[in-house]
Write a protein that binds this DNA or RNA. Structure first.
Length: 156
DNA sequence: GCCAACGTTGGC
DNA sequence: GCCAACGTTGGC
């Protein structure tokens, strides 16, 4: 089993969208970056995934979801109505993949970006590398353990 | 809203 | 294959 981190804007699909219907299977689609796609392909059933909220008021890791279906062709790439439509992708050679996720738990309080940046042992996280834009990335066992055992973020 | 950093595109 | 232009990401 492996660990991952995915970014999302909570206004699109945040941890509360998972928590609201804990049994619901939510497709993780719309990834349109090759490196991120390759990480999606590497996910296996049962992998745990940090859900990171970006571009919002409370930036940070807001919860954990779990992979329940491994990579399959992302249907949105073939849907002309979808904002993720990719006219260059062909059904016999799909470019993009999706996985399915379910809710596992929220992290309260959320692990803020500031905490992540200022905690030892996390400097290898792609999330905090300079200018990083990767929306799906691996998290090592050690990094996962650190993030799961963090004390409450320090008062500023 | 700003803007730095980045990935992709397309002309050559 | 190069690389400038462009659109997007994402923190601030």
């Amino acid at each position: 089993m492996a660990y991952w981190l995915v970014k999302t804007e909570p206004s699109e699909c945040g941890i509360d969208d998972f928590a609201r219907e804990p049994e619901r299977v939510i497709p993780w689609d719309g990834v349109r970056n090759y490196q991120a796609r390759n990480f999606l392909r590497a996910m296996t059933r049962g992998d745990r995934v940090f859900l990171y909220h970006s571009s919002c008021q409370h930036i940070g890791i807001a919860g954990i979801v779990r992979v329940v279906r491994e990579a399959y062709p992302d249907p949105t790439q073939f849907d002309p109505e979808s904002p993720y439509h990719d006219p260059k992708s062909r059904p016999d050679a799909p470019r993009w993949q999706a996985v399915d996720m379910v809710f596992e738990r929220k992290l309260q309080p959320l692990v803020t970006l500031d905490t992540i940046k200022n905690t030892g042992g996390l400097s290898g996280l792609a999330l905090i590398k300079r200018g990083n834009r990767l929306s799906v990335m691996p998290v090592s066992d050690a990094e996962w353990q650190i993030l799961m055992t963090l004390p409450a973020p320090p008062k500023m």
